[in-house]
Design a protein around this nucleic acid. Structure first.
Ligand SMILES: [Mn+2]
Ligand SMILES: [Mn+2]
Ligand SMILES: [Zn+2]
Ligand SMILES: [Zn+2]
Lengths: 143, 143
DNA sequence: CCCGGTCATGCAACAGGATTGCAAATATCG
DNA sequence: CGATATTTGCAATCCTGTTGCATGACCGGG
């Protein structure tokens, strides 16, 4: 599983946008940059805690909201009704997601972009398509 | 918006399956049969209440679970992390859904069935695809 | 038609995820 | 440095959904 970013990007990423690079933001962004799958609030909380720099629960929620609203992360809603977060890979937000029915992990499929002109019933107006693939991740797929 | 079923189907539907036709089940199934979009627990609760036959919150959850596990309803997870329910239209469960970004309503697109051979990264095993269209419903689309 | 086992219901308590209000701490800029 | 705006922490609350347990209803066999 490829990580794609080096661990020290967090601060520079924030600074390059002219945004306040607070410890909480750096820590969370750093964790997201190092993740191979989308992380839940609980996942991130556990990591901050094991790194010895625990954040308040609410602060973590707010940092995540902030990252999303500033285009640095994106948020995925899965069937278990838990938000999961991932660094925003590029500008577009149209890629598909993969959810493992074994372990529940969620992965972004950055290459896979649902692009089809769908014909909707009378009166409906199309804005965006969202595609989620379900299956087994490499780990759960092992025999 | 088409309803597709007559209101008295509920009892017969249950009886034709040799299942207990309790008042709660009849009421909930009846409400689902009369709905033009998928209904949340809260929606259904409000309707039972306004019909003067309120159900216990837990009973409603259990009736809904029961309907789903017996193939009489199906359940949709939307971005707002609320389950929505719909009568099961036919055997297949592979159709797409439409979520209105204006009012939040969810509609089944029974005709639209995602059928594409998707190429996943190495090691991932495909099981099922889930497609959700986002846009404006006929009501919210009005100028 | 009624009796009894099985299944359904109601109520209370609980769980997990997320949000809100508010005061204290921190950053940024002149 | 001090004024101002932003961020953080903590407590309380909300919302959706679940679990345990006792009571009540359904329905097939007698
Ligand atoms: Mn993604
Ligand atoms: Mn549907
Ligand atoms: Zn897995
Ligand atoms: Zn709408």
């Amino acid at each position: 599983m490829l990580h794609g970013h080096s661990r020290s990007d967090a601060s520079s990423l924030l600074q390059s946008r002219g945004e306040r690079a607070t410890p909480a933001r750096k820590a969370v962004l750093d964790i997201l940059l190092g993740a191979s799958s989308a992380l839940s609030h609980a996942d991130i909380d556990a990591q901050t805690r094991s790194r010895g720099q625990p954040l308040d629960r609410v602060t973590l929620y707010r940092v995540l909201d902030w990252l999303v609203s500033h285009g640095l992360a994106h948020r995925i809603a899965a069937e278990d009704r838990v938000w999961r977060y991932n660094v925003a890979h590029d500008q577009d937000h149209g890629h598909a997601h993969f959810r493992c029915s074994g372990c529940g992990q969620v992965f972004c499929l950055n290459e896979l972009r649902p692009a089809f002109a769908v014909s909707l019933p009378e009166g409906f107006h199309f804005q965006q398509a969202e595609l989620t693939i379900q299956g087994l991740c490499p780990t759960c797929n092992k025999p």
